[in-house]
Each structure stands twice: as structure tokens, then as C-alpha cells.
Amino acid sequence: MSIQHFRVALIPFFAAFCLPVFAHPETLVKVKDAEDQLGARVGYIELDLNSGKILESFRPEERFPMMSTFKVLLCGAVLSRVDAGQEQLGRRIHYSQNDLVEYSPVTEKHLTDGMTVRELCSAAITMSDNTAANLLLTTIGGPKELTAFLHNMGDHVTRLDRWEPELNEAIPNDERDTTMPAAMATTLRKLLTGELLTLASRQQLIDWMEADKVAGPLLRSALPAGWFIADKSGAGERGSRGIIAALGPDGKPSRIVVIYTTGSQATMDERNRQIAEIGASLIKHW
């Protein structure tokens, strides 16, 4: 067993022997301040990774656009098919120029040779490549099948209805392509620590998230040296922004954090800054 596999296998073990965790309302004060600064709703939840206990939450059962955070769930569904012998990570998928959609920095470079399922998941999570996500959605049967996968996990809230990039439209009061912070946090925890996926697939999923290259201005910008984070960000229309993450000190994750916002007129930089400040408060009061 590799060191990384050992780390993920012992996530519940280490967490069980940690000192009790206590909620700190100071972080919620910052979440509410972010709402004021952005002029928009902000949803927040913080779960203990081992027990699933909610440590703090704000608007945990209000719907927010998922945006690209759905790509972690998508690759979880792909990995479940791999575990069941219905898919192979090494299978190569070929596609054409007509398949390319807006923001496809990886797939646009491989029109000639195609990409493997493993490479597509890596591109979808680490670079948020939209064509990679659409190609992977095709392998599982489309958005409705991802929703069905989530329902089978016990998540009857999260739903995907459309493809990239239309799913980022974020129309107010439109339930399409949305989740709730509580539902997303619980589902992410199941994917990373539950028995739904094999140990190898859980490790692969967290490795992809740990290698995320496009979430630097968010929670990662607030992390002290030595902290662990595996995350996936999302951005959408109407001032929408979000991030889902597993993080913790001492090089291992111990909490799940989900943050979503929508309806702001603020710039992307300002949305990023507010999420980073929430992260800084979380870490300060850990």
C-alpha cells in the first residue's frame, strides 16, 4: 500500500482519535458579512469528516447552483462504474471539434489522439474542462443518470439537468442544476469515506481534487503551510461562485467545507476574496 493510499485508508482512524471539535460562531459572522459585502445569498456548511456531524452552517438547506462543483460527483459516478466493471479508466475516447464547448483548455489539445477516461476526469476536476465533463456525462448516460446515481446514494436534493455550459445559467428560483450545502457536503463525505467506492477509487477521487489547479484564489489562499486540501470550485452566471473541499491540518483532511453564493453584482475577484476570507476565519478558529 502506498503512503497516499495509507493516508486515505486511515482518515477515519486518525479522526477518531482527534480531540473533540467545537464550532466557532466567528466564522458564521464572516459568512454573514460576506453576504453584506456581496449583496447576495451565501450558503455555508462545515462537517466533521469522521462523524458527519454538522459543526457550523448557514442557509444549509437553500438551493444554490452547483456550477462546476458537480464534476466531482460526476467522476465519482464514473469511478463507481469502474468498480462495477462497467468502465475502464484506460479506455480512450475520441471526439471532434464539434464536441468542444466553451472553456476546454485540455480537451482542445487532444482532438487528434483523444483522451482516456482517467485523463478526462483529471481534466474535468483539476482544470474544470467543460468538454471533458460533457464527454464523461455521455459515458454514464447524461445528466439524468448522474441525478439517479445521487438518488441511489441517498441524495434526493442534488440534481443535474443540463450539460456544460448551460448548467451554469443560475436563474433565480430555478431548481435545475442545483444542490443544497448540506446535501453536497453529505454526498461528498460519502464519496470520500464511505463504502460506495473502493479504496482505490476513493484515493483516485481525492487525488484529482488535491491536484486542483484553478481554485488557488479561494480556500487555498488562506491555508497555512502543512495543511491538506482537496477541492473543486465552480463559477456561473449572475454572480455565482462555489467551492467544495476536504481539508485539515497535519497533512490530512478532517472536515468537509461547502460554500456557495449566487445573485451578486460583485466582480469575480471580490467573490473570490470573500470566500478566501471565510476560509481564513475557519482556519483561525479551527
Rank of each mutant, 00 (worst) to 15 (best):
E26N: 10
T27Q: 12
K32G: 13
A34N: 03
E35Q: 13
L38P: 07
A40N: 06
V42F: 07
Y44E: 00
E46W: 04
N50I: 09
G52P: 04
L55M: 08
E56I: 05
E56K: 07
E61L: 10
P65T: 04
T69K: 00
K71C: 00
V72W: 04
V72I: 09
G76K: 00
S80P: 03
G85K: 07
G85L: 07
G85A: 07
Q86R: 12
L89T: 12
R91G: 05
I93G: 01
I93K: 04
Q97V: 12
N98T: 08
L100K: 05
V101P: 03
S104A: 07
P105I: 11
T107C: 13
E108L: 15
E108G: 15
E108P: 15
E108K: 09
L111W: 07
T112E: 15
D113M: 06
M115A: 13
R118I: 13
R118Y: 08
E119M: 12
E119W: 02
E119D: 15
A123Y: 03
I125F: 00
T126L: 09
A133C: 14
A133N: 00
L136S: 02
P143F: 05
K144I: 15
E145W: 13
M153W: 07
M153L: 08
H156A: 08
H156I: 07
T158N: 02
R159F: 12
D161Q: 06
W163C: 07
P165G: 09
P165N: 09
E166C: 11
L167V: 13
N168I: 05
R176H: 07
T178E: 03
A183R: 13
A183F: 14
A183K: 15
M184Q: 04
T186A: 12
T186S: 11
T186E: 15
T187M: 08
G194W: 08
L197E: 04
A200M: 09
R202Y: 06
R202K: 08
Q203V: 06
L205K: 00
I206F: 06
M209E: 01
A211M: 15
D212R: 05
V214W: 06
A215H: 05
G216T: 13
L218H: 03
L218I: 05
R220I: 03
L223P: 02
G226M: 10
G226A: 09
G226N: 13
G226E: 10
I229A: 05
D231I: 04
G239Q: 03
R241H: 04
A246H: 05
A246G: 13
L247C: 09
L247W: 12
P249I: 11
P249M: 12
S254K: 11
R255H: 11
V258A: 06
V258G: 09
S264V: 09
Q265G: 08
A266Q: 09
T267P: 08
E270K: 07
E270T: 15
I275L: 15
I278L: 14
G279N: 04
G279P: 01
S281E: 08
I283F: 15
H285I: 04
